[in-house]
Design a protein around this nucleic acid. Structure first.
Lengths: 132, 132
DNA sequence: ATTAATAGTTACTTTTGGTAACTCAAAATT
DNA sequence: AATTTTGAGTTACCAAAAGTAACTATTAAT
């Protein structure tokens, strides 16, 4: 009974286990979920991935509906995790440039995949919602 | 100057645009981000993907630290979007079974990829955090 | 007779997210 | 010359979301 479906199931069980197992207090998968699952992190990474180096207000304008406070918080968190690099130029008015680190770019590739799935399947999801 | 790096950049710009563009009031990518980016949706999908059909309390025990209220809310949302199917058996005590729909399984595959990335890169992220 | 199990719901509290106003100094506008 | 704008934030406040604890009904087990 070692068919492919069962092997797939085993693989997913393994992933669930990883998604739930803590090692010295931290679960890697949950930790990443927590990092990217706030409202603005993914969009910020998309913006920096798409346009390269950007200044604070350039990101803000690209995203459109993010507040200064939330963009600040988001960028600080991404910086802390080493996904985004922050360069301050001692000028007036201030000039701060952001860009993705190699780690940030590797996450971007995952998010691009996810974005592709969203594009392909959003019509089905919206249809399901309306059917309720 | 049409090198591969530039092509990649174009591709990411395209993705950012998709991640930000609204069509009749809804942005597909943001919509999906909003759906899966609550704390419990991804873990619930992982659990159902890994173990197949599960009852309410089985999911709760697998995840461990989700409250009844939040698991109920999460499952209802996933059901509304057509990612999870809910079957009620008219028994006492009540019996309700959940499992992923084909749409849910297709999302699971994306989340498994993301989980893999998390596994591979969490050590680097934790190291970056400590370096602050 | 009391306790446990199932799948929730309800009321309440805490945490997180969002809004608006404010900062500073220089450059541009009136 | 005086006001406004720009840039990158910060601070105080308020709304929304998430978490906690207690409660529901019915049956089977202790």
């Amino acid at each position: 009974m070692e068919n492919t479906a069962f092997k797939e199931q085993k693989k997913f069980q393994d992933i669930f286990w990883k998604a739930n197992e803590t090692r010295n207090g931290i679960c890697p998968v949950r930790d990443i979920i927590a990092r990217i699952s706030d409202k603005w992190s993914m969009l910020t990474i998309y913006a920096l991935g798409g346009y390269g180096t950007l200044r604070f207000n350039e990101i803000k304008r690209l995203i459109g509906d993010v507040s200064q406070r939330m963009l600040t918080v988001t960028l600080r968190n991404l910086e802390t995790d080493g996904l985004v690099e922050r360069k301050v130029f001692p000028e007036v008015p201030p000039r701060v440039e952001y860009n993705l680190t190699p780690l940030g770019f590797s996450l971007l590739e995952q998010l691009v995949q996810l974005g592709g799935w969203a594009e392909q399947n959003s019509a089905a999801i919206i249809k399901n919602r309306k059917a309720q």
